[in-house]
């Protein structure tokens, strides 16, 4: 399709800042998927905000020609939720890595799930800490040897999808950075889903923990017969960690907190201090 000035093509969402990632980083695939999904939805750049925390993947907002908020380590979710509560008219995406979302900011995930504020979170999981050069992450496998775990990781491996499902997140999906078309479609659905959308993306780090070859062989398409309304079945599929399923696990539309909060303001009127102070005598 030929591009006109009135068409928001994927490249129109590219900012003038060039990505800082290593060659071969999975996050390039995720970034392209984001450009594509924004373009498919024709989201106005001035009404779209990409929020992140800190980490390699959290640099992403700088590379997108929309509004962006590169926040603090672990805090993409509360920033995004505050923004959406105050400005429900905006499309808000939160992006980040496994360190951001499952370690320092893991606590926020629980409450984002409970509130079901209409934001979409894209987690680029490389099972390692890239920006700080390869320490262990919550999604690293037990026994994983890194500079911070020289005798092997003693902790268990975090299961993002099972956790999201247990929290009854209203949209739970997994993608793979090397399958950008499928990923773009999931992000697109996530943005369109009314409520908190959680998209877990396997996005390998070629520099500190290259899982590319493993994932290329283990990643498995979601069984066609899977009913995305069945949370029990979704939970069962999420337990298959040796062959991670990609696709939509679960979806459930319900009231969002931003919508409910703004319903409450429908009868609002301009503040009148004299009227307000009548309660004090």
């Amino acid at each position: 399709m030929s591009q006109t000035t009135l068409t928001l093509a994927p490249k129109d969402y590219k900012s003038e800042v060039k990505p800082t990632w290593c060659p071969g980083c999975g996050d390039f695939g995720v970034l392209n998927a984001i450009y594509n999904s924004l373009s498919v939805l024709k989201l106005p750049p001035d009404e779209t905000v990409v929020v992140s925390g800190i980490g390699c993947s959290s640099r992403l907002p700088h590379f997108v020609q929309t509004f962006g908020f590169h926040s603090l380590h672990g805090r993409a979710l509360p920033v995004a939720q505050g923004m959406k509560m105050a400005r429900p008219d905006l499309t808000v995406l939160a992006v980040g890595g496994d360190g951001d979302m499952f370690s320092i900011g893991a606590g926020h995930l629980i409450h984002a799930a409970l509130r079901n504020i209409d934001i979409t979170v894209v987690v680029m999981d490389n099972e390692t800490y890239g920006l700080t050069k390869g320490q262990t992450s919550p999604t690293s496998p037990t026994g994983h040897v890194t500079k911070s775990t020289p005798y092997g990781l003693l902790a268990s491996q975090f299961n993002p999808i099972a956790t999201a499902l247990s929290l009854n997140v209203s949209f739970v999906a997994r993608g793979f950075s090397s399958r950008p078309k499928e990923l773009a479609a999931l992000i697109e659905q996530g943005i369109q889903h009314k409520g908190f959308s959680f998209i877990h993306v396997l996005s390998p780090c070629p520099t500190f923990y290259n899982t590319m070859d493993t994932w290329k062989t283990t990643v498995t398409p979601m069984p066609v017969e899977h009913d995305t309304r069945n949370r029990f079945k979704a939970m069962e599929l999420s337990m298959e960690t040796a062959k991670p399923f990609v696709g939509l696990f679960y979806r459930d539309e319900r009231t969002t907190m931003d919508e409910a909060a703004h319903k409450m303001t429908q009868q609002s009127s301009a503040f009148d201090i004299n009227k307000y102070m009548a309660r004090y005598k």
């Binding site: 920033v79 505050g82 923004m83 509560m85 905006l90 606590g107 409450h111």
Partner: peptide, 28 residues
């Protein structure tokens, strides 16, 4: 809500303050 504003009880003070930042960025 009576004057058109929104309120959020956060899970902790870190979330409260960062939510304030997000809202402020939104012009609130």
């Amino acid at each position: 809500p009576q004057i058109g504003g929104t309120f959020m009880q956060a899970e902790d003070e870190i979330a409260a303050m960062t939510a304030v930042l997000g809202a402020s960025f939104g012009g609130a």
